[in-house]
Design a protein around this nucleic acid. Structure first.
Lengths: 341, 341
DNA sequence: AGGGCTGGATGAATCGATTCAGCGTGCGTG
DNA sequence: CACGCACGCTGAATCGATTCATCCAGCCCT
């Protein structure tokens, strides 16, 4: 293994000079610099980041912890974050918490051990306990898809209450009086907020909380959607509309309803959430609440970079809570449902 | 920041003992061990992996470089690999090459700098040049979704020629005489192999290479599929069957054909590749070639772990080339197409 | 009682890059 | 000619954890 000392010997300079060539080339005479660069190339020298980080105290890696990379929504968030980080010369370590508080804690511990430069985090634990525990490591972090609790960190989120209100208002406007909410793990803030928004829209239409029939799921994927639809089919006085906590669930619901011969949208309206690319390619194109996923990743990355820059310059950094607005995309899955009077 | 010395002082022992408590607790007297563990907990000590790695020479992180995390196929590969790695106490750093040889080289350089313990790699560059360049770092790696060239590394792949032969044979058996191949970047081995298999199936049916009409794409995503379908619509003597290099392309093709009023499968048959979960949930459920994605990730991880274990024990490791077999899943998108005589 | 042994703890050397005080050279200026 | 200064380069100290030779205390055995 080639180390800096080998390069120094080969180029006939001291190790300090080699380090300078790598880190502040303008402070080295051209002739020397060229000789060192040649030695680096000839020997195939790659600097050891562990030694570097040990010295400078922190790494050039960001941690990104999302709920589930199987969800294209988070893939888009990751894409945005990664691009921003790369422009600043930082690497990104992407991890899945699988919506589990335990795995979240485990990965945050990994990030702390790695002394990552900062963390972008979609919390899996609505109690905020693991996040609080992480704070003691003094690693800057930004919450993604979740509003910060105070002014102790930045956050980028999308207004879930507003989004689900849009979705369910669209259903009540079409005359639906009873709406199924295919939800998910209660410890996710998103699930709670989307319920709140749904109830608000129902209330606007003069409907009480019992107009919302909740079908909880353990996970937020297609299989869970299929399972929820099976339960839906067994409900007495079958409702005419389904609002799903995300598009994966909605796709699963759609598949099972189709297999059971229930015509969407004629017999049942479906609204999803996230507007992933596959929503528009579905058997029946899905009406969905669009979230600016890539923008969220980009913005979160930028907020984190700002905080890191401020820290390095010894300036004050003011934490910001950015809330983006979602948008309803109406497609065939909610058009023309026959609603019994 | 709490370091090992602080823990040692607090527990009234030497730093060597603290290190022993962490790394070989059985060599420490119970009483001492408990005192040290208490000190660690009270101070919230987290060991610095950079210092550790500097000393021991390598990290406990694996690098995983895939073509595109936007493709659920690779998400499944990553899931399998990650689980295997975690069971062995290793972290995984997942990166996208975006099918670009340049980005591949960049990420491999990052892995080398990080001194990752090993790499799982889906090559973006069919020439194998970046992989060859990576070899000099002497970091063990396993090729994923690509057969190794020699006996210098392990590989896990799926027989792409066989898979595409299955797909196109299915089409010729249904009477199709001309097949469109929506392909992708030529520098991907998969694209070349899937063409080879398609041609083989056509030859079996007594059809020459001009029975395959190729529509190349720049990227392997839904948007590229939509674009290819637009070109397909403009072809003279419109063919009756489309074989897509992956399911994302097929979904895009399906969407555009649908929008243009072309009935699938009545007027056009479509076969995809990968059998991602969304293939079965599509507007018309897609016939597709199923690949054992998660198994591939798991297997690749295990081969890498074997190699690392052999290295640590100073044993010989024999490189293996595992080739898995794909399977055709027939769905509605290819059933009952009307083929002109 | 003395020698040998063992389980347990110690502390110094080490990994590789960075950083900075300090040194030498050469140039310009008074 | 002497002095001061700027520029380049050097080399040692440093980061934090690991490891291993070494030491110590206590115990057993003869």
């Amino acid at each position: 293994m080639i180390v800096i000392k080998d390069v120094a010997r080969r180029a006939g300079v001291s190790v300090g000079t080699v380090s300078n060539v790598i880190n502040r080339p303008d402070q080295v005479a051209d002739q020397t610099r060229l000789r060192v660069e040649a030695a680096i190339a000839e020997l195939g020298y790659v600097r050891n980041v562990h030694a570097r980080h040990l010295r400078v105290g922190h790494s050039r890696i960001l941690g990104l912890l999302v709920l589930d990379m199987g969800n294209p929504f988070f893939v888009d968030v990751a894409r945005g974050a990664e691009r921003t980080a790369r422009e600043a010369g930082l690497g990104v370590m992407v991890c899945n918490s699988n919506q589990s508080a335990a795995e979240e804690a485990e990965y945050l511990a990994l990030f702390a051990e790695q002394r990552v430069r900062g963390v972008l985090l979609t919390p899996a634990d609505a109690t905020g306990r693991t996040v609080e525990a992480f704070r003691r490591h003094e690693i800057p972090f930004v919450l993604v898809d979740r509003v910060g609790t105070g002014t102790r960190e930045c956050s980028v989120s999308v207004d879930d209450v507003a989004g689900s209100t849009l979705a369910v208002r669209h259903l009540t406007a079409a005359g639906h009086r009873r709406v199924v909410y295919v939800s998910g793990p209660e410890h996710l803030q998103q699930i709670q907020d989307r319920r709140t928004g749904a109830l608000a829209a129902l209330a606007e239409a003069g409907l009480g909380p019992d107009a919302l029939i909740e079908l909880p799921t353990e996970t937020l994927d297609v299989a869970a959607g299929r399972d929820a639809a099976a339960r839906l089919l067994g409900l007495p006085r079958r409702p005419t509309a389904v609002f799903c906590a995300n598009d994966l669930l909605a796709l699963g619901v759609l598949q099972t309803l189709f297999a059971a011969g229930v015509d969407v949208p004629h017999d049942m309206a479906i609204v999803g959430y996230d507007d992933i690319e596959f929503a528009s390619a579905a058997a029946v194109p899905l009406t969905s609440v669009r979230q600016p996923a890539t923008a969220m990743g980009t913005l979160a990355g930028r907020l984190l970079l700002d905080e890191l820059a401020a820290e390095e310059d010894g300036e004050e950094h003011e934490h910001r809570q950015v809330v983006l607005q979602p948008e309803l995309v109406v497609r065939r899955s909610t058009l023309g449902t026959r609603v019994p009077v």
